[in-house]
Design a binder for these strands. Sequence first.
DNA 1: TCCCACACGTGACCC
DNA 2: TGGGTCACGTGTGGG
Lengths: 562, 562
Amino acid sequence: MLSKVNGVVWMEEEGGVGGAEEDEDAVSWTRGQSAVGGEGGGGIVMGDGKDELGLASFKSMLEDDWYLAASAGTSGHGDGGGHPSAHQGGGFESLHGHHIRHHQQEINPSAAETMLLQPVDSSSSCSPSSVFNLDPSQPFFPQKSALSSLLNVVCSNPFDAVSFDLSCDASGFLANSPMLMNRGGGAAGVGGGGSGMLGFGGLGPCGPMVTSDLMPVPDNGGGASYNATVGLEVFESSPFLNRPKVIRPLEIFPPVGAQPTLFQKRAAALRQNSGRNLGCLDSAGAAVSHGSASAMEEHEKRKRVEEEDDMDEASIDGSGLNYDSDDLTGDNLKMDGGAKTGGGGSGSNANSAVTGGGGGDHKGKKKGLPAKNLMAERRRRKKLNDRLYMLRSVVPKITKMDRASILGDAIEYLKELLQRINDLHSELESTPSGSSLPGSAAAPSFHPLTPTPPTLPCRVKEELLSSSLPSPNSQLPRVEVREREGRAVNIHMFCSRRPGLLLSTMRALDSLGLDIQQAVISCFNGFALDVFRAEQCKEGPDVRADEIKAVLLHSAACHGSM
Amino acid sequence: MLSKVNGVVWMEEEGGVGGAEEDEDAVSWTRGQSAVGGEGGGGIVMGDGKDELGLASFKSMLEDDWYLAASAGTSGHGDGGGHPSAHQGGGFESLHGHHIRHHQQEINPSAAETMLLQPVDSSSSCSPSSVFNLDPSQPFFPQKSALSSLLNVVCSNPFDAVSFDLSCDASGFLANSPMLMNRGGGAAGVGGGGSGMLGFGGLGPCGPMVTSDLMPVPDNGGGASYNATVGLEVFESSPFLNRPKVIRPLEIFPPVGAQPTLFQKRAAALRQNSGRNLGCLDSAGAAVSHGSASAMEEHEKRKRVEEEDDMDEASIDGSGLNYDSDDLTGDNLKMDGGAKTGGGGSGSNANSAVTGGGGGDHKGKKKGLPAKNLMAERRRRKKLNDRLYMLRSVVPKITKMDRASILGDAIEYLKELLQRINDLHSELESTPSGSSLPGSAAAPSFHPLTPTPPTLPCRVKEELLSSSLPSPNSQLPRVEVREREGRAVNIHMFCSRRPGLLLSTMRALDSLGLDIQQAVISCFNGFALDVFRAEQCKEGPDVRADEIKAVLLHSAACHGSM
DNA sequence: TCCCACACGTGACCC
DNA sequence: TGGGTCACGTGTGGG
């Protein structure tokens, strides 16, 4: 149902995101990504996907797998440093892949699906894109657009998403994991881990290099699909290389992926740094890059792992594959974890003797719980990160890649959307034809979609400010009424809170024949009434804004007076 | 400017959130809170605040202060266990402080600012509420509603929001911050830190106990204001104690507050647990509660700290005061940190030998960085949490209190909004004249971004809408009423929106002799009413919760029935 | 008991 | 160098 409509996209998201359980949500996200990956990489293992369970299990599997895979893969390349040429190359791949993808998406008609995928990817990729955005100087890519598109995409894939989410939601996860595994195997071969490698290999230049390194990359690629095209670009596009700094993250491939963003960024950075210099093995690079080789290695591993995880989520399929290949999972994971910790030895954590202390999971610290807990924690973290990225992907304008910024941007964006909806509502109702915006000045602003509405006309802002600010308490009642089209109105009222004010205000509005359709009223120290949309009863005569205002002011005054 | 208007709050948020830099954002958030605090606590050090930098500094200051204060306070009580009675008391304090504050705010006419603050607080407080929501069983609080309300608020302030975004985006934030500070200073003087303490002391029972403990509280209190009432409640209201579980968070006063949510929940829980048993010193309590006294202590401290931090953010002013009072800050902080770490000694962390190992900040591990870093990390964490709560507050329907869930819900919600926008767009275009559509069609498409879906068939759209919205709508009216102490009640109501519902509900509440002091009401698809605090008129007979519920249900039903 | 979620402190990295 | 960010591993509490 949902899926069909464009709304579908939304639906999915919703289901996945909010609607269902977290896990489910996570799944959904993943799915989306996976879908994307599938599209791009093609190789999604749909058969598996079919199972609802698949997803869930997938997810978990993936996560675990991640670690495992990552560790496995990582260890392999990270330690061994088998990569041929650039980390960068690898990094780029992913990043480019994403970007490229975006372009492709646009380009490709197939798009519909792609779109969806894209979104997913974008989510992951988003980060990259956002990254791009970050760099003012080098926005070469349409991150924003990408993002938006992604969002859209997500939205666009109502079906996909929906189906996934729904199916996935509940049973999905758990059951899924196995599925994932299977899937992974089943998958075309985007391949994560070893398989993934293959995928990359297919890409071309990257392939080789990637292989060892790519382990992670694949994940990022999640998206093997991306790689193909991407790979080329990467190599081709020196620009990225050229500008390591800002872009770096992106460059590397943060963009691509799903989760690399942060991780990738860092990883990429590392790689670049080390990589460029070294351009050799990962390990070498790592070592080179910094003082503590061991530390570096660990770091890399971890990052990779995470990346993989991300990938998993992002492109579950791919990851799935990897996992499958790895298959070591459980034990390996632990081991990996242990190894990591042990290896890393950061300080306190390293300790972690708990985890692995020695080699096994139970070492001694306490119960041996640590290992499990550790994994759980990792999963949790990853999940959270994925969500975060997802959120990022959904938010068109991303100021910074910071987690906090992401949240902040999301909040802002959310508000913006609400505002828009409001405006649209008013417009809709009021202006039949005027569609355009008569009413809503705001509409235009956001409409444009400009993700960056921000710039909206200052004037508007001013208005708002004036209105908004007034606030405070002691203050005089402040009422603003805007007529939208037709009989719709927007009301903003602010004054001190007084007992009975709420009721009297409601009465006043009612007396005016206004039906409050969308509003938010808050009482605390003060009283704030924001009616986004209210309509005058059809029957009644038109009430003018100033009338409304007068009535409300009176109401506020009466009470306010006290 | 901004500061003045109620919008301020929003402004801040928006600005803080999306618009500006993270720091700023953070600041903004903080401000909101701070503002609140200022209102409540008043004692913000405004002088400093004036500087734009001030904000930043404030922020940092506060945060640091938090820690310091907290640590100071904490260390004092935590380690020494100087606190008179309960940790709970302490914990409560903070929490309560928040709640109380709200109350006070409400009480305080100064409110206008408060209002703003409130929202902010609410955001933070929301978390608690959401927490409640999480519990299916115990939704007593209007978390959702709160959230929704928040959202609404945000939304509601179309102007504000817009303006904010716009204005805020760039300069706004920075500029604002100073304002806030100023305001805070201007505030009545609730009092933060030391001052705050006083405030608490004023409260009564809590006062004494709190004092030592309160240090942190003030922060929370940001809001000393709350404390007064809260403190009482806490002590008085055994119920909370009685129902530690689900309610806990709320009970404690999560609602109030600002950030307690997660923190508070836990903290509260801890306190309750320990507190109840012990009811003595914090340290004692801690020790009692669990095996590792030291660990407990640390925990408590930490929590408190965080709480404080939250407070800081929430009610920066307060914190500011505290800080001021403390003044120890820098060094103290370090010390505190060190102490904490040292004291706690949980395991790995404890170690923290880095931090304090011994007593001072620099111990030895590496550079002595740790301490600083530690603080930074704490701040960061806090900031992130605040944002998260903020986000939560904005998202109307929160399934779980999980971080991941919050993100997921937010994403979903976001998608929903996009979908809606899309639909609206299509409708707009199509409906009015089809002509516009084309172009606009684009709109929808791009809007939604979903390139494809673009225009989903209206019909579909309709379906979707119906479906999407559903959440609210379809539902049966849901009303939850909790009696607080005395004549205070908490009400959470959620049902489909119906014309006149708002008024009828208000009438119903009025008829019950309830004075709505703190509430958030949001209307969109559904109708959500969250009354954080309402008091029955002194005159009237006591109204029982079930009566209220019945009346509200009736009201909802009448309208709801449709 | 386990699992989950969280907060914490730390090391590493970047700017 | 210093602040900020991040991931990690751990400890802990709640269910």
